[in-house]
Design a protein around this nucleic acid. Structure first.
Lengths: 204, 204
DNA sequence: GTAGATACATACTGGTTGGTATGCTAGATG
DNA sequence: CATCTAGCATACCAACCAGTATGTATCTAC
């Protein structure tokens, strides 16, 4: 179907390697401090190729968010959330999985989404809106789970599902932010424990 | 006592105006993206003066943390925490005061401390350690309050004061981070409400 | 009164930044 | 076979960056 297009496979692979390298560079240094030359060095791709695929640095940044971070969030959060079972326990399992992920992928670099939110939201509205969309989807996934629990009678009905979901997400990001600065996975676990205790208090 | 030193008052005021402008620039754009020239333009101070007071950009950044942010945190948090009364209510009042403060001082710029933590902790250890010290003091102030409540019988004794204090701080920073990206003070209040509910669950 | 230090001011530098202009090659298309 | 375009590669550019070198006015100390 797309075999007739010339060099399509190779072109796409250079684009992907640019996205990956850009993601890593941005994850470590932030978007503004991320150097295009460093990204090029890392990949071996030339500047002409980069500007063939992306019209400027901003669009590269947007693509990293849309095509890399959003996809990672999908497999890291939204998929685990589809599991059946007691809502509170599904939530806890998803959070635990997130914590495990950050055991390999250095917690010291922080949550990529939160990093960009923090750095760019006040400066560029394109970033802000993209992050906002992801955060809303994230919150909704928690809210839906809580509401289901309330209907099933497994979650306290006196709480507001939307507000609580928002607070849970904020706490989760807060935990990762604190652990990033403390540079210790133990602190993340400690903070996660506080979150677990809170989640348990939401049971019916 | 220091009147005999030449131009001391003027020298100190230029230093202070540099610190203030640097704080504002860093608060908005982050440390790395903060431009020294922009800081100079803002103050009318010249480059020679800047490098007379600070040996380089990094030291200016450290001074902003040590002399401006730390001081602001003192009056915004540690002072309210000294108030007498029921620990949970003192905590809530302090949080409310923080929220009110960010009604004027645009939440869209976020918590200055959290911004620097997020941006610099993975890159520069000087920043990281300074932020860590402030976070630890912050946490300890909450922990002490909770422990006092536990002794007095007004706070649930089944919780660990240190862990809980850490989680409260993480949630607080998380709330401000979410509100920053949402660019809405309402979201801050909404998230704050979730925090209040949690705090109420800690009563004995 | 002069030597020295403080508190700047001005002009400049080398390096890096994002971005561009131009050239080239290989495959698709007519 | 000629033409066109996708997919690069190379060389370059102006703007900006943190930092420096040098000069100078003013006050203090002796």
């Amino acid at each position: 179907m797309n075999v007739h297009k010339n060099m399509n496979a190779d072109a796409d692979s250079t684009r992907q390697s640019l996205l990956k390298a850009a993601y890593e560079e941005i994850h470590r240094y932030g978007f503004q401090a991320a150097s295009l030359n460093a990204i090029l060095d890392r990949t071996g791709v030339t500047k002409g190729a980069l500007y063939h695929h992306f019209s400027n640095k901003l669009q590269l940044g947007y693509a990293v968010l849309d095509e890399h971070i959003a996809v990672e969030l999908e497999s890291l959060w939204f998929e685990p959330m589809q599991q059946p079972g007691h809502p509170i326990e599904v939530l806890m399992a998803a959070i635990k999985q997130l914590g495990d992920h950050y055991e390999c992928e250095e917690i010291t670099l922080g949550c990529p989404l939160n990093n960009l939110a923090q750095e760019m939201s006040a400066i560029d509205d394109g970033f802000r809106q993209r992050v906002d969309t992801l955060y809303q989807r994230w919150q909704t996934s928690i809210e839906t789970l809580l509401a289901r629990g309330q209907q099933q009678g497994s979650v306290n009905t006196s709480i507001d599902a939307a507000d609580t979901a928002f607070f849970i997400l904020a706490s989760l990001e807060g935990c990762m932010s604190m652990a990033k600065n403390a540079q210790s996975h133990d602190e993340l676990m400690r903070c996660g424990q506080g979150l677990m205790n809170y989640l348990n208090s939401l049971r019916a």
